[in-house]
Nucleic acid binder design. Structure first.
Lengths: 352, 352
DNA sequence: CTGTTAGCGCCTTCAT
DNA sequence: ATGAAGGCGCTAACAG
């Protein structure tokens, strides 16, 4: 038993074959379940395999088959529960299809993204899912890696001829603004991501488009940029508060972490939410449910994005060269961080 | 350029050698930086490599060297921010050492743990970090896998002769109870994990020990079991509330997710926190900072656990067969969910 | 039904 | 300083 430790090395299929008194091809046939082998021999090989503690060497298998059973995924920030959830969705599908996931976080560094990408290629992953942080101009060359991939996130818009999965940002933004409108809010102030990020541009332009479509002039909308983090949200909110004139302030944050930061900053500034400040977020992370007040937000289909990306990638790996670019719908999660003026009738409905 | 796509297959080191007009051994020497090669040849090989878009095949390298550069990690629940943070710590060290992490979640299923473990072994990871969910009795046989590993979490206590990293539960528990004591609280009620879990037993016995050491009889302590999740905490809290007699209720939850659930349940039951109910958690997840009121908790060194486990694993992989079992200290994070009786002097200090 | 053989891509003696 | 050759563990023809 467990001759692995006895020998000081793992048993190979040859060890199994010898122990079972057959050739290594026969043993291999039993292992892979391919080809015809007599029941008696099958049993003998199985027994030998168990006795030796034989574990098939996937490296060798990959080497011959050209398939590693490894899939890579790179997201900008695995600390952000949103991305964690995307990865989880991917993970679920990976396990289902018997492959293992190599998970990386680029932490918003193009350099790290590049190096992780190289690691993936050298590991000969069968494919990868990527949310590239590359903005226009410095689009990376992962298209030449000779490895199937599916893009996720807003930056996938930069690669219109590649398969990608994302959330429907314009629809999500419209859902948020519809809600604010229903609740009788003015033009919201924006807390957005870093200036050069494509995601920021898409977010802002979706908002502008929404108002323009409704004959409302969006030019007065204030926006503060920040990192996509709690602290980024705090800092942006601090600036917003400093410049704010008037009574109630309505804030639309480009992600939930920032929204959480904004709420914390407001509280620290002595502002009550939602009485003095209304905040609506974008992502739908679990923390939003427990903050005070619970965060009203637009939930992206995070897990679905990960799942669908893996499904798509699976087809690509199978050789199906179809290009699909689904944009999954977001949904409003109404909690307590947006004041409802329409109920109190304290204010006319500016946007309705 | 990019002959990978021209050929329909990735260039191998032979392609590079041919393009550079040298033998594959010479090319290999250049790639690995080992051995003497004339500068002129080095340059030629480098150029050819770049031109062809050559990417070293780690499978082949692993096969010869016996090192895959892959490390596995299995945690019980990657959705729990605590474990996510542990993984993140591990990830950081992995990147530093140039290896890639295969991350799995057993989702509290022994069956899934086993199958993930097998996947890791077959992938020939150089080693793995594991929080086994195995309780006493059904200890798994990963000790015979012939693969270096470091255990993390409470269940590592079941393998006293193996290297492991954990948090110092008795110290953490004492820190929590000291704090409650300072704030003038009675014996707390407990929200604990599932009954059969070793972690639950350790938690409860650390609490009993604390009181016994101080000549206080802990037998009256009520405890409700639940899943290690928000909903588990809610359900346990609901039962606690139902049975509660008296005024203020003090709750010590075995993890933050359950604490969050407990607070939510209390709120739904019309109980104010901390006025009517004090809650202290255990873990130190980020969400605790934003809930209402912010959760007072005992922060485990989550990231440090991941980092140290990887450091230790690295030594094991290098052949250093030392056994180390550090238990990292926890620290009190005082926020707003525990009422301070000592300030209001509404109650005598029972435990001080 | 089973055995033999030839590599997958790389590194590393050994020889030149 | 360079080339030739063997083999890591496995599978897929090809023979019998």
């Amino acid at each position: 038993m467990r001759r692995a430790s006895q020998f000081g090395r793992r048993p190979t299929i040859i060890d199994v074959a010898i122990a079972a008194g057959v050739s290594k091809s026969t043993a291999a046939r039993v292992m892979s379940g391919q080809g015809n082998v007599s029941p008696k021999v099958v049993a003998a090989v199985r027994t030998a395999s168990r006795d030796l503690g034989y574990q098939r060497n996937n490296m060798a298998v990959s080497m011959r088959s050209g398939r590693s059973g490894l899939i890579g995924i790179i997201v900008p920030d695995i600390s952000n529960p949103f991305w964690a959830e995307v990865v989880r969705g991917a993970q679920e599908r990976a396990v289902l299809s018997g492959s293992s996931l190599l998970i990386f976080s680029s932490d918003w560094s193009a350099e790290r993204e590049r190096s992780h990408l190289q690691a993936l290629v050298q590991t000969r992953v069968d494919g990868f899912v990527l949310n590239t942080i590359a903005d226009e101009g410095d689009t990376q060359d992962f298209t030449n890696l000779g490895c199937p991939f599916v893009l996720i996130g807003t930056t996938s818009d930069l690669y219109p001829d590649r398969s990608s999965v994302g959330s429907d940002i314009p629809q999500g933004v419209a859902t948020a603004l519809d809600h604010l409108s229903r609740c009788g809010h003015d033009l919201p102030k924006l807390i957005t991501g870093p200036p050069r990020r494509l995601a920021r541009a898409k977010f802002v332009s979706a908002i502008n488009r929404y108002f323009i479509d409704r004959d409302i002039d969006p030019t007065g909308i204030e926006a503060e940029n920040g990192e996509y983090s709690v602290n980024g949200g705090r800092a942006a909110m601090a600036r917003l508060i400093r410049h704010h004139k008037g009574s109630h302030m309505t804030v639309f944050a480009a992600n939930d972490l920032m929204a959480l930061g904004a709420m914390a900053e407001a509280r620290d500034a002595g502002l009550a939410c939602p009485a003095d400040v209304s905040v609506i977020g974008f992502d739908g992370i679990p923390s939003g449910e427990f903050c005070s007040p619970p965060l009203t937000t637009i939930a992206k289909p995070s897990r679905g994005i990960g799942e669908d990306a893996m499904r798509l990638l699976g087809r690509l790996i199978e050789g199906d060269s179809v290009v699909m670019r689904p944009r999954l719908p977001c949904r409003l999660v109404e909690r307590g961080s947006v004041l409802d003026f329409s109920a109190t009738r304290e204010r006319t409905l500016h946007l309705a």
